[in-house]
Simulated scan of single mutants.
Amino acid sequence: MNRKIRVLVLMGGKSPEHDVSLLSGKQVIDNLDKNKYEISSFIIPKSGKFDFVLFKNLKVDIVFLAMHGSFGEDGTIQGLLEIAGLPYTGSKVLASAIGMSKPVFKKLMEQAKISIPKYLIFEEEDGLDKIFNKFKYPFVVKPANQGSSVGVSIVRERKNLGLALESAFRFGETIIIEEYIKGIEVTCGVLGNKDLIALPVVEIVPQNEFFDYEAKY
């Protein structure tokens, strides 16, 4: 009889999305086939501190990454797993880092001549004229390196701008200002590495103004 594949579900971490990661991890554990997989879990606390030696020596075949946001999807934990010599699901270090950094990703899309919304990289020391010289209301304000719509706001008038900037700057010194495009939002997952499988396209119909953190979770 073949041995079951030993899967470690890794979740938690110091991201603002810590609690969502725990929910994702539970969903993974509940839905993995117990006849095929020997399942264990490891929760990184909100402090981000854990025993790396203990973690590195865990007897597993693969780590299922159920982590979200910074330190979970930005190449950080991927690099740690590379050092530990533990195989893991999802993208590797470089792809994760690029995908999580909106400024870097947008510049790569521009170089590839792929159409993207008009945007502006905005720093804490920049004046508001930098925004108003490029955008009219409404526009979108978002952190440069977060997921799950954390810190994202649609600014429709001047009185909402201060709070939107404050919310986005909570997560770093650089944020993104982006043109607002009204339309249908869709999502499409892609599985695989060389032989890719595109999952069905799904339209997102949020109950809130847009598909924000609250609407997602």
Rank of each mutant, 00 (worst) to 15 (best):
His18Gly: 11
Leu161Asn: 05
Leu86Glu: 06
Gly183Phe: 04
Val140Ser: 04
Val205Arg: 13
Leu199Cys: 11
Gly172Gln: 10
Ile177Lys: 06
Asp126Gly: 04
Pro45Leu: 07
Ile176Asn: 03
Gly183Val: 03
Glu125Ile: 13
Glu125His: 14
Glu173Ala: 12
Ser115Leu: 14
Gly72Pro: 01
Pro143Cys: 06
Pro206Gln: 11
Asn31Cys: 13
Ile114Lys: 11
Arg170Val: 02
Phe210Lys: 08
Val28Tyr: 06
Val20Leu: 14
Ser153Ala: 03
Lys92Phe: 00
Leu32Tyr: 05
Leu163Ala: 14
Ile5Trp: 02
Asn31Leu: 09
Lys59Tyr: 01
Ile77Glu: 01
Ser115Tyr: 08
Gly147Met: 05
Phe71Gln: 05
Leu8Ala: 10
Glu125Cys: 12
Gly69Asn: 01
Pro206Thr: 08
Val7Trp: 02
Lys130Arg: 13
Tyr37Cys: 07
Lys216Gln: 10
Ser115Lys: 15
Ala84Thr: 02
Glu173Pro: 02
Val150Thr: 04
Lys14Ser: 14
Glu125Asn: 15
Asp19His: 04
Asp19Met: 02
Glu125Arg: 15
Phe135Pro: 12
Tyr37Asn: 03
Glu157Val: 03
Val53Pro: 00
Lys56Gln: 13
Asn2Ala: 12
Val205Gln: 10
Glu38Thr: 04
Pro45Ala: 08
Pro103Ser: 09
Ala164Lys: 06
Tyr180Cys: 10
Leu10Gln: 07
Val141Cys: 11
Glu124Trp: 00
Ala144Gly: 15
Ala97Glu: 09
His68Cys: 05
Ser70Cys: 06
Glu17Gln: 03
Asn35Trp: 01
Thr187Met: 08
Gln78Tyr: 04
Val63Gln: 07
Val104Ile: 15
Ser24Asp: 01
Asn145Pro: 02
Val152Cys: 04
Gln78Asn: 11
Ile62Ser: 07
Tyr213Thr: 07
Gly192Asp: 12
Ala198Tyr: 14
Lys4Asn: 11
Cys188Gln: 15
Met1Ala: 14
Thr187Arg: 11
Val190Leu: 14
